[in-house]
Amino acid sequence: MSNEAAIMEAPELQSEPRRIEDATAVQEPAAKRDEPMMMDEEQEGKGHTVGDITAADPVISVRNCNVHYDDTCALKNINLDIGRGEVIALIGPSGCGKSTFLRCLNRMNDTIDSARITGTFNLYGEDIYAAETDVVLLRARVGMVFQKPNPFPKSIYENVAYGPRIHGLATSRAEMDDIVYGSLERAGLLDELKSRMDDRGTSLSGGQQQRLCIARTIAVNPEVILMDEPCSSLDPIATAKIEDLIDELSRNYAIAIITHSMHQAARVSRRTAYFHLGRLIEVDATDKIFTNPGHRLTEDYVTGRFG
């Protein structure tokens, strides 16, 4: 089963034993996928998602998303919109497929041979999985922040400049400075780090590292930012700073954030989607999900009966 989880999580590359250990989100075992899914269907009628899956001004819209690994079904019939300027929280027990879903949105689990992804994924109406879509460009538009802060072993400046450099966003040193300092400013790091631009990114504290990673993502100027449990390895103070930052960023970017903390979901997100065993059970305004969930499973989860 760990093998399967690894296939599910290993981004971009062919799965390798080593990568199993390293992959950032292995904590989501796929074991529960083997449990019969039919049960919910029988209990809950057709298994339609409860609530409103649409957003007013969708940046990304996903319809009929199914993901299979060999014979196992990782995601089943997911429909979801992510709107402009909104933060949507994806919650659910481990192994429910949130991470897989998130990685589908910028094709991080692209080259896994055994993965079959079907359905339509649109970014501003353009098909993410179309043959002519360039995955490089796609990932420049849909940025990603990982569970564990992963700054490159370079200077702080070079960490932020990495994306713009590979994409050729800056034509001059001054432009690059603008991008780097602007991104750090928006990540709320500039004041702290202005005098330390040549220090190594790895020398920062955990929270600063994660904000550096966010700055690094912003520097490429993405339209959507995907965050895979960005605070799970941070202390409460650092977490609070990141949450403030997410709040700030939501003015300009569409943000999808996976979180295991109900409180975090409640604090940062406008909408919340609840995943369960590869299904999207319920999507609604966050306060509705937490105060008056429309589905029994959601209620069980948010009230802490399992998860």
Partner: peptide, 13 residues
Amino acid sequence: PQSLRDGSYGLGA
């Protein structure tokens, strides 16, 4: 660490 590669791929490298 694989996380460094992930970071780079995630930025579109």
